[in-house]
Design a protein around this nucleic acid. Sequence first.
DNA 1: CTCGCTAATTTAAGCGATTAAATTAACTTA
DNA 2: TAAGTTAATTTAATCGCTTAAATTAGCGAG
Lengths: 342, 342
Amino acid sequence: MSDQRVTMKDVAKAAGVTTAAVSYAISGKRPISDETRRRVEMAIKDLGYTPNMAARTLSSAGRSSKLIGVVVPQTEGGGRLLFQNQFYSEILGSIELCARQAGYHVLISATDANESYLTLAAERNLDGIIVIGMYPDEFYQQMKKSRIPIVLIDSYCNDHYYHNVRIDDAYGSYLATRYVLERGHRDIAFFCGRIKDNGVMKKRLAGYRDALGEYAVAFRDELVFEGDIDYKDGIESANRLMDTQVNATAVVAAADILAIGAAKAFYERGVRVPDDISLMGFDDLEISQYLTPGLTTVRQQISLKGEKAVELLIRSINEPELTKQEPILPVSLVERESVRRV
Amino acid sequence: MSDQRVTMKDVAKAAGVTTAAVSYAISGKRPISDETRRRVEMAIKDLGYTPNMAARTLSSAGRSSKLIGVVVPQTEGGGRLLFQNQFYSEILGSIELCARQAGYHVLISATDANESYLTLAAERNLDGIIVIGMYPDEFYQQMKKSRIPIVLIDSYCNDHYYHNVRIDDAYGSYLATRYVLERGHRDIAFFCGRIKDNGVMKKRLAGYRDALGEYAVAFRDELVFEGDIDYKDGIESANRLMDTQVNATAVVAAADILAIGAAKAFYERGVRVPDDISLMGFDDLEISQYLTPGLTTVRQQISLKGEKAVELLIRSINEPELTKQEPILPVSLVERESVRRV
DNA sequence: CTCGCTAATTTAAGCGATTAAATTAACTTA
DNA sequence: TAAGTTAATTTAATCGCTTAAATTAGCGAG
């Protein structure tokens, strides 16, 4: 009702100056006498003034909204959002934290990969966007039209408009597979997402092959099980593995959730991990250490990925001419109990 | 560089009318001739015009930003955000989805429970806020000063400024405990968050007591294990349970993540679930069905919570005088393999 | 003293929309 | 045919802030 919001005008009046002086006192873009600054600060405090970002965004030159968008993929199936997956929520958490510390707010969006992000960017005057995951090519074609800095996480998009934050997927997978090989396994199945449309999975498969090669183990097509990257398809792959008699003694999963699904399927059929079959994950989700048995996996510092992405995005916002950056974050093997010597 | 954004002025010029006509054509707040509307629509399409929300928010009367804030708690420990917890990310996902469908965007924030939300609300002209979880009293005192609609999820805050969306926690817990009792258990431990500062946990404890009472089983203080609501404290409680010789044959956990932690601790010490001890959860996180054994638990439709919250918030935005609403969502028991007859 | 110079502040023009109020055009109707 | 309606559009003010340009005051130097 009567509660008009406190505006800069009110502050100006209270401090006995004009709004311009208040603005300069706040931003420090022009020298202001100590006396004036003091009075302005007092007035701000007394009145409980909060700048209105809409006005700030609108008013000339700066044109910055201090808002960044985070685009999270949706599962094709519709319904469940992919970021119900631990991985996405963890990364989202760290993005929010870092962004806030840098004075930015975070808008989330999980729209399907249409032009709608373009609209979002324009509509909300986004200063930048972080895109998590892989998308169809046309998405990247479209997206750059926004003309704002964009950082991709876990994408193998080559377009040099975009910055990229990722881990060394091939090496991680190589590590995982080597670890299993070192423990005597030779018939090693590989569970992964659809190689065709997922650069991350392509790399992880490559790492698996590299390790096999190093141990002179022939790569066998029938040991590779593709599917969606969710629990269900982990189960699905494990069942297919058990049904076809390929006799693998170990499974390297290209994602922890696939491993978790697989573990469940094995359990259901009385196949014990690691006694009857060894199981290796990739990601090290928070849950993975609490599974029974604990999942041996490749750790990537998920929240570090978020941090780096924000850092890079903000740098790119401030340095528009910054050329494509692609930091590669480290991975490491976390030994738990799901793989055993054969 | 030369890419000035397309503004309403550009559209107006292209359509040969004034911005007012364009605005009315878009909003439909005044009658516009078919001919004009057609020309405006064409111009919008041709130029690729997207309305600028900052300007829209700023310009008079409406004063709506079509932006809602979602406040997610931070763990006291700092570091890890609580919404890395499946529960929060799942609810966040559904909130985003529903909000978007209703034409709103979602700003996330996980600041510690200071006045900063107040600032956020003012700064960004938020139309409303959804607050997930319990906060200290002063938080609620502060928050209502924002004068915008606020929907709390899982809070037992009585202040009638706030709407509330929750489940029947006591009943859920009653169901869980009764289920365990029905299977012959009499020494039933209860793992939960800190009762003192968590209304949800208080209710769930009450439900546990109710069920015990119904079966004439005495409530024993030493069977209640409090802690933080995370995996670690699930482990912690289970270890304490095993160390003190209280000899429980079953554990009812007031949250799935507590149950998951407990399962891990039992596993580590060679105590088998459900053979040696039965385990009951609460929440039915997505992961719970994939645990080994599958966790018997109380399902709450997490995403429904999000949907209801958005629905209620938007209703409240449109009907400012709406009196306090508190929809209670249903719970149900999901039978899996972690509880067995004794 | 006056002139220039610097520092601090004010003036005033936007930013991109919305919207109340005024205007114009096209019809009725008496 | 003049007056009265109604419908469609324009005019112009405004939202809360930023910022280029103008103004003012104070000061040292010539």
